[in-house]
Amino acid sequence: MENEAMARRTKHTRGTTPPTLTAESPCPCGLPAPYGECCGRFHGGERSAPTAELLMRSRYSAFVVHDAAYLLRTWHSSTRPRHLELDPGMQWTSLEIVATTDGSAFHSSGTVTFRARYRHHGNRGELHEHSNFERENGAWVYVDGTFVE
């Protein structure tokens, strides 16, 4: 659901233009490294995220910049949609990692609970979810998630 909910509004409507990030821009995921050294290296395909948490952060950043190709590439094959259209009216504003379990180089699965804040056509909202991740062909991928009340 993490990414299903983030992408739920698939109908194209008038909206904001996703931010253009340079390698030196602050990374949208909230870590202190610049985008090029943080999520940008995963988006560019240079590396795969080494932990479930870093994959979650990079997927959040992909929603920020509307990188549907990266989102599909990092979605588990059993739950991946055929295509993904991102709502241009969604503006993701911040990510907070609430908790993680497993998901390191020593695990085959892990979870990340997070809060992602957004504006949709000027209205503020928050997505609070517990997401499941697994390794597929050696790389971390998003499987599914449940909303946290």
Results as ranks from 00 to 15, higher is better:
Arg119Pro: 01
Pro88Ile: 06
Leu21Trp: 00
Gln91His: 11
Val112Ala: 03
Val112Lys: 02
Ser104Phe: 03
Arg9His: 14
Gln91Ala: 14
Ser58Arg: 07
Cys39Thr: 13
Arg47Lys: 15
Val112Gln: 05
Ala139Asn: 06
Cys39Gln: 09
Asp67Ala: 14
Arg119Met: 08
Glu53Ser: 05
Tyr60Thr: 02
His83Met: 08
Thr93Ile: 03
His107Val: 00
Arg124Ser: 14
His76Met: 10
Thr20Trp: 00
Ser61Ile: 02
Gly110Trp: 02
Leu72Asn: 09
Ser48Val: 08
Pro81Met: 10
Ala68Gly: 08
Arg80Cys: 11
Ala116Lys: 06
Val65Tyr: 10
Pro81Arg: 14
Thr111Cys: 08
His76Thr: 13
Arg80Val: 13
Gly110Met: 04
Thr22Val: 10
Thr10Arg: 06
Arg47Ser: 12
Arg8Thr: 03
Phe106Pro: 03
Ser94Leu: 00
Arg115Ile: 11
His83Ile: 00
Glu149Phe: 08
Glu126Phe: 04
Ser77Lys: 05
Ala49Leu: 06
His121Glu: 14
Met56Val: 01
Thr16Val: 10
Thr100Arg: 06
Met1Asp: 12
Arg41Ala: 04
Thr10Ile: 04
Ala7Asn: 10
Ser77Leu: 01
Asn137Glu: 15
Ser25Cys: 12
Gly89Phe: 07
Lys11Tyr: 04
Ser25Glu: 11
Met56Ala: 08
Gly138Thr: 12
Met6Asp: 05
Thr101Glu: 15
Asn123Phe: 07
Gly45Asn: 07
Glu4Val: 13
His107Tyr: 03
Thr51Tyr: 05
Cys38Ala: 14
Glu85Lys: 05
Pro19Asp: 07
His130Gln: 15
Ser48Cys: 06
Ala49Pro: 02
Arg9Gln: 11
Glu37Trp: 03
Arg14Phe: 14
Ser108Tyr: 01
Ser131Met: 11
His120Asn: 09
Pro50His: 05
Pro18Trp: 07
His66Cys: 10
Glu129Arg: 00
Pro34Asp: 05
Ala7Arg: 06
Thr20Gln: 10
Gly103Tyr: 01
Thr51Ser: 09
